[in-house]
Amino acid sequence: MSGGNYKTEDGRQIGGTLMEMKNITLRFGGVVAISDISFDIHEGEIRAIIGPNGAGKSSMLNVISGFYHPQDGEVWFRGERRPTMKPYQVAKQGIARTFQNIALFNGMSVLDNVMTGRLTHMESGLFSQAIWRGKAEREEVENREAVEKIIDFLEIQAIRKTPVGRLPYGLKKRVELARALAAEPKLLLLDEPMAGMNVEEKEDMSRFILDVNDEFGTTIALIEHDMGVVMDLSDRVVVMDYGKKIGDGTPDEVRNNQEVIDAYLGVSHD
């Protein structure tokens, strides 16, 4: 099942194609991390990329966010072919992300961290910023309001002024999500949002991901190890193994795919 609009099981209307990866191949020297993979992401859906360790999931996310540049293949975003872009240009296009190993600004407060997420929305120039007049001041106020909304939404008001470096792991993950959300992204990339969390934290994070998708209509692409979580959260799943795509479809379709079962449970080679 791909292409066209569709309705999810819980009745949400999914829009047209937001992003399309066409025949992506990524090599590091002689190692092929991704080989000839194509898939698409529709507006408003939660799309998961799963696979065993070393399958190339993170590499794929890095291709989407511009950290890696594939040797072959095309990236289409909002109906246009995307030229080779630097990560900061991709961010400006409206693609925000979180990292597997949390990349926050540890010396800065939670509020400041989330504010950096608004940078792509600030247009006032260096000069008006320097003298702090007119547009710069107005922008700061507007952006503060947007940020406070997200802080409320993710229930991190209590730690607004705390330096991020002092927070426990689970909260850091949430702050990182807040920073990505602050950019009001058209596409939100989550690299293992639940890695290293306990059950309770996982439940919280799952709820936030669903709420974000529901309230803001944000399109989300996520990588996750925890199969249970993925199947519950996502509308459609891409399964990767050794850099190849071995499955693509709804959680149910994927669950019953023999190749996927083999990749996850191992298969006897006799």
Partner: peptide, 8 residues
């Protein structure tokens, strides 16, 4: 890395 990801 984080700076790049927020568009800096």
């Amino acid at each position: 890395q984080a700076a790049l990801s927020v568009g800096i």
